[in-house]
């Protein structure tokens, strides 16, 4: 399992991905710094709505995880090296788990850093708020990674479908159609952040913490289970 984790980590840390991840991670911090510089008193509700909710949870984190999740199975299916890891005595879940951990850890660290730093600056060194946003960001990375790793195993068009999902589902439907938030990863990550610090995201629409936590766990387990099953039944290129 360690070998698979390191192999996937090596792929996830390719220079192109690191560049992309670095750019995405810097964006919220840069925009926040600009907002604070040009406006005398940026409202916290605006910061949470535009920077954390729309930008970080709705675009930056899903894009970063979509890019790194490809290192799990998508790249290996494309370059036909997947057979190297499936022609092994390991049960399939022992292949999925280290890969999922590796592709989660890379954007997880980057997004935790940018979420923590951005909110630390914006909330004026409020550690409870910073911690809540960071936990919410990491939860979002875990959820999105589970989804995109699974997606790579079920379709060869994972990037296109993933991008459509980010823009249409998370960007439009979940923000403007009531009820969709129950099926929105962005909404669950906000709920988790709100659960850690109730002052945060109080004005934003999201589900209750308990429900979000349960749904998130169910979703991660279901996607992991199906990814394992898919790896057993699919044609390995």
């Amino acid at each position: 399992m360690k070998s698979l984790f390191l192999l996937t980590l090596r792929r996830a840390l390719s220079p192109v991905r690191l560049l992309m991840l670095g750019g995405l991670a810097l964006a919220p911090f840069a925009v926040t710094a600009m907002m604070l510089a040009v406006e005398d008193g940026t409202a916290m509700s605006d910061f949470e709505a535009f920077i954390l909710n729309a930008m970080l949870a709705g675009a930056i984190i899903p894009l970063a995880t979509l890019a790194t999740a490809r290192a799990g199975f998508g790249d290996e299916i494309s370059d036909r090296t997947l057979a190297n890891v499936t022609l092994t005595p390991y049960p399939r879940w022992k292949i999925v788990l280290p890969k999922l951990l590796a592709v989660t850890s890379v954007p997880g660290l980057a997004m935790a850093a940018t979420a923590g730093l951005t909110s630390y600056v914006a909330y004026g060194a409020d550690l409870a708020a910073t911690w809540a946003v960071t936990v919410g960001a990491v939860a979002a990375v875990v959820l999105y990674s589970s989804l995109f790793v699974w997606l790579d195993l079920v379709t060869p068009h994972a990037v296109g479908i993933g991008l459509a999902y980010i823009v249409v589902w998370e960007g439009l439907f979940s923000r403007f159609i009531y009820g969709v938030r129950f099926l929105s990863l962005r909404s669950h990550s906000l709920a988790i952040a709100h659960g850690v610090d109730e002052r945060r995201f109080a004005d934003e629409e999201h589900t209750a913490l308990g429900l979000s936590a349960v749904l998130a766990v169910v979703l991660i387990v279901a996607l992991f289970f199906h990814a394992t099953r898919r790896l057993r039944t699919m044609d390995v290129p």
């Binding site: 192999l7 370059d79 036909r80 090296t81 057979a83 190297n84 022609l87 092994t88 005595p89 390991y90 049960p91 399939r92 057993r232 039944t233 290129p237």
Partner: peptide, 19 residues
Amino acid sequence: NNPPLSKRMGVMLEHETVY
């Protein structure tokens, strides 16, 4: 779906499966 069997088999596919 028989992972243990892969310990007894060596498979070299047509495509270049190296890193």
